[in-house]
Amino acid sequence: MQHDPTLPGMRRATPADEALVRGFTRAAYAKWVPVIGREPRPMTADYALALREHRIDLVEPEGVLRALIEMRAEPDHLLIVNVAVAPAQQGQGLGRALLAHAEAVARQAGLAEMRLYTNGRFASNIALYARCGYEQYAEEVLPPLGTVIHMRKRLR
């Protein structure tokens, strides 16, 4: 178990957590369905595969899942694939704390850049990432998904 004072109860997900991760992510992203008219990608992801190929860390104080972050190390950066926070916990700093956690993971791996992508219609997420030091570096239109905003942050 990892010990992070800003994220009590953090642990690395295992393959046994597949249903938990899937159900939690679906609940966290449900608010976006009416915004984009479909389920966002994290709601339909293959979490059995993700748990084998990515690092997923869970924030589970008192055994109750409150947030998670999914990351994939690339040769020159750490990609944040998914940040999910329980609807009742949104707006309380957990997303920001998870981004800081990911930056610590990147530094430990010797990586100097963070990257992530999000739907162009997720304005509150884009604003959060910008407040955390991420800048937009690319935009791509992927019919029928919409516009994908690519953001990055160089670590010191």
Rank of each mutant, 00 (worst) to 15 (best):
M1N: 15
Q2N: 13
T6C: 15
L7C: 10
P8A: 13
P8D: 08
G9F: 02
G9R: 12
R11W: 11
P15N: 03
A16W: 03
A16I: 01
D17N: 04
E18L: 07
A19G: 10
V21T: 02
V21C: 07
R22V: 01
F24D: 13
F24Y: 07
F24T: 08
T25S: 04
A27N: 13
A28F: 00
A28I: 01
A30P: 06
K31S: 08
W32F: 15
P34F: 00
P34V: 00
V35R: 11
G37C: 03
E39R: 12
E39Q: 12
E39K: 10
P40A: 12
R41L: 13
P42A: 04
M43T: 01
A45L: 14
D46A: 06
Y47M: 00
Y47N: 06
L49W: 08
A50L: 10
A50K: 14
A50V: 11
L51G: 03
H54G: 04
I56H: 07
D57L: 14
V59H: 11
E60Y: 06
P61V: 08
P61Q: 11
P61F: 08
V64D: 09
A67M: 11
L68R: 01
L68K: 02
L68C: 05
E70K: 14
E70H: 06
M71T: 12
M71S: 14
M71R: 14
R72M: 11
A73S: 15
A73N: 12
A73Q: 15
E74M: 14
P75A: 12
I80M: 10
V81Q: 13
N82S: 04
V83P: 02
A84D: 02
V85P: 05
A86T: 04
A86M: 08
G91I: 00
Q92H: 15
Q92Y: 00
Q92D: 00
Q92S: 13
G95F: 10
R96Y: 07
L99P: 00
H101L: 02
H101Y: 13
H101E: 03
E103I: 06
E103L: 06
A104H: 15
Q108C: 11
L111K: 06
L111W: 08
M114G: 04
M114Q: 10
R115M: 09
R115D: 01
Y117P: 00
Y117G: 00
T118R: 01
T118M: 00
N119H: 11
A123G: 05
A123I: 05
S124T: 08
N125G: 03
Y129M: 04
R131E: 03
R131I: 01
C132M: 15
G133V: 09
Y134D: 07
Y134W: 05
Y134S: 02
Y137F: 14
Y137N: 12
E139K: 14
E139T: 13
L142G: 02
L145D: 15
L145Q: 13
V148N: 01
I149N: 08
I149D: 00
I149V: 14
H150M: 09
M151I: 08
M151A: 05
R152T: 04
